[in-house]
Design a protein around this nucleic acid. Structure first.
Lengths: 245, 245
DNA sequence: CGTGTTTTTGACTTCAGTCAATTAAAGTGG
DNA sequence: CCACTTTAATTGACTGAAGTCAAAAACACG
């Protein structure tokens, strides 16, 4: 409809959650926004902020993180293009976690009220936005289980599988061959491990013939075996047959 | 308004998130429901289910959990009276986690569609329900950080502080003196530890003069010091001054 | 009062963390 | 295009927090 609009990734995403009519899609594309480029490792939202705008990731990657005492950090989700990175923080008024860019990012900043008004003026759009936040919660729950109850190998493998599937689903890579935009230290902060142990675990996966890595490129050689040792069951992503259409 | 209705805890809760007028409150009280008693350790929702009803906890406690390979389980949240225990699962159509009763529970089961219709017919109620799910997500994020990046003592202390504050806020106990409805094994599954280590950690907290336990009763002797070693900052609960009114 | 949980304790093990050094890669400016 | 700095990946030796196993004590309850 407006293929060149920075809002296109959002419109496409919402269409997956709820069948939207022409008028509803137009309303999405009519959202006011300002478009910005942001450098890597920049904070988009900081815990304690009162964001006035919602940030839609158009290209690049960002993470949500929480900082604990003694400086440790836990990455609680990774956002890929098409994600609204701080719908939570905006609606809740006071941000309870940080959002930081991982790579160079381009993003559309939409006023908080515009999103809220749209959500309730157009129930189907509203439901799609709500579902978006619920899936985010589902991913965080799976991460909590991953961190709390799986060993290092399974944790790291699970993260690699999740990425494979989310990138594939967003049309940003093949399921078994993609670019992982994270350093080993960031993988460590996402899995509750240390970077040293992540390094050993990644090369163990390579040694087991499950993956092949070159720089940031990941090839999953044997998806079936990988999914098994990763204890990966993608239903929590609510993508396919399980999707809440 | 209808102080004896099982829906009263829901109405009260929603009032905290959004100022509701008389008509809006009436609409909440007009929700159809069936009232049930459920025994302890019963599954209310199972991962993979397609729930037709939303369950509102009227009295008693329940948990959300994920089961991993080899039988491990991770508790990802505890629900207290007034919580909707499976709004997520209902809206997403296919449940991505289990809900299980911890104690004897009484609950109101509300048809999924009735909730959804109300949410969009009454935007202020809808926003309050949405916020309810967002706060749930915020708590899960904090738990992920707790499990992934804090040591045993801090993890357990954090859980005790969170309970203290949530129960107090719901009018179900004093902040420094309450009944914890969980066994040490369940605390272990909530913190990513083993029950043996939880036991040692709980008595270490007692020995440090931070808590006094008798059976399930918890007294926090020195809240300030406890909150400090727990790395507990309640902003993520979005209760007080930070609340998104 | 006996049966089944739950809590507590002790002895021993292990997975992952720590510390520290080396190598490799990616920028950066001249 | 090359020295120079910075960041990221890798490796090895050692440590330690939490897990495992197993048994006893304390409760809870029909």
């Amino acid at each position: 409809m407006h293929p060149d609009s920075p809002l296109a990734p959002l419109a496409n995403k919402l269409t997956k959650w709820s069948t939207l009519g022409r008028a509803e899609l137009e309303a999405v594309y009519a959202l006011p926004f300002s478009f910005k480029q942001i450098a890597p490792h920049k904070m988009i939202v900081r815990e304690g902020d009162r964001p006035t705008h919602c940030c839609l990731l158009v290209s690049g990657f960002s993470i949500r993180q929480k900082i604990v005492a003694r400086g440790g950090r836990q990455i609680v989700n990774v956002n890929i293009p098409g994600d609204m990175v701080d719908l939570q923080n905006s609606l809740l008024k006071v941000a309870d976690h940080d959002v930081e860019t991982l790579t160079e990012v381009s993003a559309a900043f939409i006023p908080r009220e515009a999103i809220e008004d749209l959500a309730f003026a157009r129930p189907r759009v509203g439901k799609a936005l709500w579902l978006e936040t619920l899936v985010d919660g589902s991913i965080t729950r799976e991460w909590a289980a991953n961190i709390g109850r799986r060993n290092a190998k399974t944790r790291v493998a699970h993260l690699l599988c999740e990425f494979a599937m989310r990138l594939d689903s967003a049309g940003l890579g093949e399921q078994c061959n993609y670019e992982l935009p994270m350093t080993q230290e960031q993988i460590a902060d996402a899995t509750g491990l240390t970077s040293v142990h992540v390094n050993r675990t990644l090369r163990a996966l390579d040694a087991d013939g499950l993956t092949q890595r070159h720089k940031r490129s990941v090839v999953i050689t044997d998806w079936k075996r990988m999914a098994k040792i990763a204890d990966f069951h993608p239903n929590y992503l609510h993508l396919g047959a399980d999707s809440p259409l």
